[in-house]
Structures are given as C-alpha cells and as structure tokens.
Design a protein around this nucleic acid. Structure first.
Lengths: 221, 221
DNA sequence: CTTTTTTATTTGGTATGCCAAATATTTAGA
DNA sequence: TCTAAATATTTGGCATACCAAATAAAAAAG
C-alpha cells in the first residue's frame, strides 16, 4: 500500500496557495520551508517533483507558482479542511480555536463522495468557524471584501470576519479576548506611535497591538 | 510533523487481534502476511518492533500474541473504526457495505477527545452498522448481560443500557420519548397481540412497539 | 564593480515500511 | 527417521520524505 503520499503533497500545495495569496514578493523555497518548518533542500526536492507533476511551475524570475491544476488541488484540500472544521465545531462541540490541527489530519482523507456528503450533512455551510469561505466542489471560492483591522478608520463600525494567522497561540489569544467571527466592533482610537488600536465591542473596550490587528479581517458595517 | 507512524502499527495490532479471536492454531507471520497482504519478511520486521515496544509477545511455541497493552491498543483502534462506520452510515448516508475502507483511514486519526465526542454525537451506539460491538473508551467490549426490552418480564424493574439501532430516526424517536441510557423503568403491561409493552418511568407511562423494544437493551435492577 | 549576504543546489545520510530471493530451520508426512 | 513441505530469517534493495553541511550562484549592499 502506498503510504498516503497525498499528505505531503497536499500540504505543500495548500501552503503555497496561502503564501501566493499574501503576495509577498516572489515565492521562494525558503519561504515555503519556513511555512512548513522544513529544510530548504527538502522543499527543493518536492518542488521539482510537483513541477514534474504539473502542479507547480517556475516563472522566468524563478518564483514558484501553482499551475491551474495545482491551484484547484490546493483549493479542494482547503475545502475539505474547512468543512471538517465546521463538523468539529457544529457537531462535536469543539471550540472554534481548537480544531485547526485536527482538521489538518482529516483534510487528507479521500473517498468517493466524502466531501460532498459531508457538505450536505452540514447544510452547505459557506464559511468555516474561523470565518473563512469554503470553496465549492469545483474549487471556486467566494472572494470576500474584507480588510485588515490594521487599516480600519477611527470612529467607524465593523464586523469581524476572519483571521490570517491560524496558529494555536493566536487563536488562544483571540478566544481569551472573546474575539470571534461575527463580533461587531467600533474603532475608538488609533495610536500612531505603535500602530495599536482601541476597540469597543458592546460595553467592552480593549487595546490590540498592530501585530494582532494585521491578522484580523473585518468588513465595514 | 510526524509521519503517521501509528497507521501501520495499528493495522498490525488490529489484524492480530482479529486473527487471535479466530483461534486458528498458533498465529504465525504468514497468517498475518496474508491478512495484511504483505511479505512475511516485512511482517517479521514489524513483529520484532512491536515485541520491542511491548505490544506483542512470542510464546514458548513461537506463536505471536498481543500483550495486554497491545490488546488495548487494538481495541481502541477497533473502537474508532466502528464509531466512524456508524457516522458514515447514519450521518452521511453511506451504505453499510461501502464504509469499511473509509473507516480504515479515519480510525487512525488521533486527537484529544475526538473518539469520545464522536461517540456522544452518535448517541453512544453499541453496535456498528455491521452488527459488531463497539469497545468502550477503556477498550472493553461489553460482554453484555443485557437483554432486549422485548424479553422483559411484567412488573419487574430495569435500567436502560443501550440500543441496537443507532439510526437517526430511531435516536430521534428515543430522544422524543426521553429514553436514554440510565433511564429506570418498570414494565407495567405486556400486550401479547402485537408484542408491545407499557412502561413506567418516574410518573411518565408510555407504550412501545415490539420493533422499538427489540432495539433497546436493558438490565434487571 | 567587488564584497557580503541570501538563496539555491548538491551531496551524502537517516528512518519507515515495504519487496524479492536466497537460505536456514522447523514441522510433518511417509 | 528421513525427507519434503512449510515457515522463519537473512540479505540486499526500493521509494518517500526528511536532514545537515558543503558549495555554487544570485542578489543586494557598499
């Protein structure tokens, strides 16, 4: 039996998709290595393999890009990930900040129909518990018109939609502060000195660092 | 990320447990190799590794046996497998004969609480869709001294232990009637005509069809 | 334009889990 | 008991997916 060769491959594609979205300069091996916590030599090997499989391509400037095929594969993995997250939160009563790692395992399970059945069972959810949109069965994703909290305007009202960072530490922090998708906030004060902001939600007012604000996506209300 | 080393190991333990149950003479490498469709040399290697890990032991006659530790691990894997099968059939509407391979993948997923949450979500099923009993969280398979409610005796007191049918419709029905494990009941009346029964629980009295009674397991109080 | 730093690549190595084929050992049949 | 068949074991190899360390090449800085 082949040893779940899709796991590694899918993780690479998913990470590359996410890095591409961030549009940080040109995407290189080291960025991928950092994101996956791997050695650059390892990444190089895999990138070559994925190029051979027509899932990645190298542009003239040597930056790494997903092909259409690779992008679709990445999006279908993301789809599975997000649907499982919905399952874990809505059905198994996990907290929204606890499910990432578990979904990371479940996303690689492949079986005829599984994802679509899961989607049906969950009632065709459009967003996962972190507020991120769930790609459809063709890998199409609804682009939501969110902005980073760090670029919010003083005095305006917003609704929290989703988060850029999915690490445990960040999600724990958010859950401690009771910040979650759907939270309605008002920007009370912007501090130029350290780019931190003061925010009002209901009667609770709190201050967020720039680092945090960069990782929270909001929409104007 | 560790490379899911538990997959192989768990498959060996599970298969060995099942072969042991069949009590075919003494269990040897070739039997395991056949069951897993592997080369005997491969099995030998793994058996040695599992002996080193105190999951298997070799008896004087060189037959392969699970240790207590190994047996427990096997049973917990079987538990996960069977619970996922229930999920796939009852929630995702797969047919009972379609789910084995998929459950084979799901059973290896490990996360704090996952199995117990799944069990709760599924309504503490006692049998999987194939009619096999599901081990509890300690790896114990209930050698049940329960009887079906349909064979209860008039006037006696019982406690509801489990259910044979774990389908949504049945579980919904039970929850409407507020019947769940732990409920104490008294048999008020047996109707010979249709084999239905009248039951008293606290101050609430209700009638259950034979079909329902066949699917409820009870113990004398 | 040269030096330094960063990035890419090569090389040799690891672990897991698998294989086929050769050899040794055990068991059982005659 | 001797031999044939079954089983166990050894040996050398393969693929995947990783690594560290050395080297080469490219990019940035001076």
């Amino acid at each position: 039996m082949s040893h779940f060769p899709n796991h590694s491959e899918e993780n690479y594609l998913k990470v590359i998709f996410k890095l591409q979205q961030k549009k940080l300069r040109k995407l290189n091996n080291i960025a991928i290595a950092n994101a996956l916590d791997l050695n650059p030599a390892t990444v190089l090997e895999m990138v070559r393999k994925l190029v051979k499989k027509n899932l990645l391509e190298l542009k003239e400037d040597k930056s790494i890009q997903l092909t259409e095929k690779g992008k679709k594969k990445a999006l279908l993995t993301i789809r599975r990930h997000r649907l499982w997250e919905v399952f874990l939160v809505n059905k198994l009563q996990y907290k929204w900040n606890e499910v990432h790692d578990l979904a990371e395992q479940l996303e690689h399970i492949e079986a005829k129909d599984l994802t679509d059945r899961l989607e049906t069972f969950l009632g065709h959810p459009v967003y996962d518990p972190h507020g991120d949109p769930i790609p459809d069965k063709n890998g199409k994703i609804k682009a939501h018109e969110t902005i980073a909290l760090s670029s919010a305007i003083k005095g305006k009202h917003y609704i929290v939609k989703s988060f850029a960072d999915t690490s445990d530490v960040f999600l724990d922090y958010l859950s401690q502060q009771e910040i979650k998708p759907g939270l309605k906030i008002k920007i009370v004060q912007l501090h130029e000195f350290d780019q931190s902001l003061e925010i009002l939600s209901g009667k609770k007012q709190f201050q967020l660092s720039q680092k945090v604000a960069l990782n929270i996506f909001i929409q104007p209300l």
